[in-house]
Simulated scan of single mutants.
Amino acid sequence: MTPDILCIGSVLWDIIGRSPTAMRLGADVPGRITRLPGGVAMNIAMTLRRFGMTPALLTAIGRDAEGEELTHSCERLGLVTAHVYRSDDLPTDRYMAIEGANGLIAAVADAHSLEAAGEKILRPLADGRLGTEAAPWSGPIALDGNLTEALLAEIAVSSLFSAADLRVAPASPGKAGRLLPLLTHPSATLYVNLEEANILARSDCASAADAAEALLDRGAGRVLVTNGGEPAAEGTRDRGVIEGHPPPVLVTRVTGAGDTFMAAHLVAERRGADRQTALDEALRAAATYVSGDIGA
């Protein structure tokens, strides 16, 4: 298959424990534990595929048993794995989270193999398989913040990304600062939640709209800021900030919601939707996801 979008970043096993009860530190409660293909790049790719696009993954996956199973799962989902860096000596990455009725309780992301692989995952962009420095990839790229700060800084100035429609998402608030080199990239659209926006903008905004303004003031070209069930915002340089209101739903899961929002927004824009329509469609898709009405 020929891809029409590249998803660069973490592809791993999500191990999620969910309980229908509110949880506190040290809680020991009944619930369900699932293991599913996950990671920011993977979650975005799966949503894009559901919307009819053909994503290719640029990531690192081990050649261990977990890596073989994960690769086959990606292929069964219709994702292009031909350009994945397969390592003989790095284990397949994993993510573990606990979610309760009161939201995400705690999570640990083990993306050390992706970080160790470094620029090796980008080789198809330079060796002719997906592009070269003289003729770089010119389609959309979804990039996540699980890459190292050094590699993200290289991407920010690399000619391999100069023609791309770059869509960027942090992996978590703890890694949001890694995206600072990409904040002012001329073709980058940043997708962040309110906490991540305040980290990048070095602000203390209480609303998504104010945070979007703060990011534009810091030199961003285009940003989308979500805030759970509160209004979200899209800000574009010289075009101002608009708001959208998420539909009220019963939240049954949170891991992957931001990735679904980003993918749905990108797809809406590629269909020709205007700013407000694209924002509203992305919010509806994320609400549907967190309510559990569609599969993971």
Score class of each variant (00 low, 15 high):
173 P>V: 09
33 I>M: 14
168 V>T: 09
96 M>K: 04
179 L>F: 06
296 A>D: 13
180 L>T: 13
73 S>Y: 03
202 R>I: 03
62 G>L: 08
170 P>V: 12
240 G>P: 04
86 R>D: 05
3 P>H: 13
26 G>E: 13
191 Y>R: 03
27 A>M: 09
87 S>V: 07
87 S>A: 15
141 I>E: 07
70 L>I: 08
225 V>R: 01
130 L>K: 00
195 E>L: 13
61 I>S: 05
200 L>A: 09
175 K>R: 14
51 F>H: 14
125 L>A: 04
59 T>Y: 01
229 G>V: 08
214 A>R: 01
94 R>G: 02
210 D>E: 14
63 R>N: 15
37 P>Y: 06
294 I>W: 05
66 E>I: 02
130 L>F: 00
273 A>S: 12
9 G>W: 00
292 G>Q: 06
285 A>N: 02
177 G>K: 04
122 L>T: 09
222 R>H: 12
91 P>K: 07
124 P>V: 08
64 D>L: 10
123 R>A: 15
186 P>E: 14
263 A>D: 04
90 L>R: 06
44 I>P: 00
140 P>S: 15
7 C>N: 06
24 R>P: 00
251 V>M: 07
255 T>L: 11
262 M>L: 12
171 A>S: 15
106 A>Y: 04
247 P>S: 10
28 D>G: 08
64 D>M: 09
75 E>M: 14
17 G>S: 15
90 L>W: 05
148 T>A: 11
63 R>L: 15
46 M>A: 13
233 A>T: 08
262 M>S: 10
203 S>T: 08
68 E>G: 12
200 L>G: 03
265 H>G: 01
148 T>K: 05
92 T>D: 03
148 T>P: 05
110 D>N: 15
49 R>M: 08
229 G>L: 08
203 S>P: 05
104 L>S: 09
275 R>T: 06
213 E>A: 09
187 S>G: 09
157 V>K: 11
243 E>T: 12
263 A>C: 10
126 A>W: 00
150 A>C: 12
95 Y>M: 12
112 H>N: 15
180 L>K: 12
276 Q>N: 08
101 A>M: 11
59 T>K: 02
164 A>F: 07
142 A>G: 14
137 W>L: 10
286 A>K: 02
262 M>A: 12
37 P>N: 10
95 Y>C: 13
84 V>I: 15
70 L>S: 05
192 V>G: 05
122 L>N: 06
280 D>K: 04
271 R>W: 11
226 T>H: 00
254 V>W: 02
27 A>K: 02
231 P>T: 09
194 L>K: 03
253 R>V: 10
53 M>T: 07
87 S>N: 08
236 T>F: 05
263 A>G: 09
118 G>M: 01
211 A>I: 01
101 A>G: 13
294 I>A: 07
192 V>T: 11
61 I>L: 11
65 A>Y: 07
215 L>G: 04
129 R>Q: 09
207 S>Q: 13
261 F>K: 05
167 R>D: 12
20 P>S: 14
53 M>Q: 12
261 F>I: 07
101 A>D: 13
109 A>C: 15
151 L>V: 07
115 E>W: 07
184 T>M: 14
239 R>F: 10
190 L>A: 10
251 V>F: 03
147 L>K: 01
74 C>P: 00
23 M>S: 14
9 G>R: 00
9 G>F: 00
78 G>E: 08
263 A>N: 04
199 I>S: 04
170 P>F: 10
75 E>K: 13
